[in-house]
Simulated assay, not measured.
Amino acid sequence: MDFSFDVILRNMPYLLAGARWTLVLSLTGISLSVVLGVFICAARISAKGLLRRAAAVYISAFRGIPLLVQLLLFYYLLPEIGLDLPALAAAILAIGMCSAAYVAEILRGALQSIPAGQTEAAEALGIPPVALWRRILVPQALRLGLPSLVNELILLVKVSSLASVVGIGELTRVAQNITGQTYRPLEIYLAAAAVYFVINFTLSQLGRMAERRLRLD
């Protein structure tokens, strides 16, 4: 089979359209995971044993079950309990909740590197716990954990391909559909791989720029 760049050029607009949904899944998923991760992290290091145990169970469960199984569970289980969400919403929820377990651990590690004196000083000044987290702890944890959070976002871009199993037209699903029509898997999957590389390379460079900027501030 002769390699044809023309096949790639003709189908690149469709692959880029699929890449848009890949980005939607990934960026929305990481946003949800950061929000949930903050609360799970707070519970994980809470003085209350019940909260610590609940957070530990959450983290163990979502880290121990493959994301593909979680996607299928969310897609098929939610309608059974009265939550008939669109496939895209179910996939974002599954990806976000799974990633939140990893983000919580990233933030916990970052928080442990913050000097305890800051918390003690805030408590001595009478700063409420919510303000302590919102103004002091979370901003520093996000800053310290930024490299790991960028890596988590890049990972989400790659694992978002699993959403194809519930019918979402992201990049991998589009590549599969085009391959079924053109019978040119080599060209199409190489093009899809190139698009994934460009997305992740761009995200990694943006992450490095953000790190350098934060170091200068």
Rank of each mutant, 00 (worst) to 15 (best):
K158E: 09
G180R: 08
A90N: 06
S160F: 00
L25Q: 11
K48E: 14
V69Y: 07
Y14F: 14
P129Y: 03
D84S: 13
L27Y: 05
L72V: 13
N11D: 15
L73G: 03
L214S: 03
L16Y: 06
I136Y: 02
G167K: 00
C41E: 15
R134W: 02
P66W: 01
A193S: 13
Q205N: 12
R215I: 05
V174R: 10
R143D: 12
S161D: 05
P128S: 14
A124I: 02
L78K: 02
L9H: 08
A116G: 14
I127F: 02
Q205W: 15
V38D: 03
C98M: 10
A54F: 07
V24S: 04
K48C: 14
V35Y: 05
Y102N: 07
L27P: 02
W133G: 11
Q70M: 07
A163E: 09
L88D: 03
P129N: 10
Q140W: 03
I45C: 04
A55L: 04
T172Q: 13
Y189Q: 02
R143N: 12
S31G: 13
V165R: 15
R108T: 13
I199E: 01
A116N: 08
G117Y: 07
D217A: 15
L142S: 06
G126T: 04
A163Q: 13
E170G: 04
D84T: 14
R212M: 06
A91Y: 04
L93G: 01
V69W: 04
P129K: 14
L203G: 02
L190N: 09
A122N: 13
A56I: 01
I45P: 06
P139S: 03
A56Y: 04
G82D: 12
I65M: 04
F5Q: 13
V57R: 05
N200L: 09
E170R: 10
I81T: 11
L32F: 10
A104C: 05
V103Y: 02
D6V: 12
C41T: 11
P115F: 00
G167W: 00
I188M: 05
I178A: 03
R215P: 00
R135S: 12
P115M: 03
P115V: 09
P79E: 08
L93C: 05
I199Q: 03
I59D: 01
A124T: 11
I45G: 06
A19I: 07
F197G: 07
A121C: 09
E105Y: 03
L206C: 13
R143K: 12
M1Q: 10
I114A: 04
A110H: 07
Q118C: 06
P128E: 12
L50F: 00
A124K: 15
G96D: 12
S160I: 14
L23I: 13
L51K: 06
I106A: 04
A192W: 05
L153P: 10
N151K: 10
A121N: 09
A110R: 01
V38R: 12
P86W: 07
V35C: 01
L137G: 05
A90T: 05
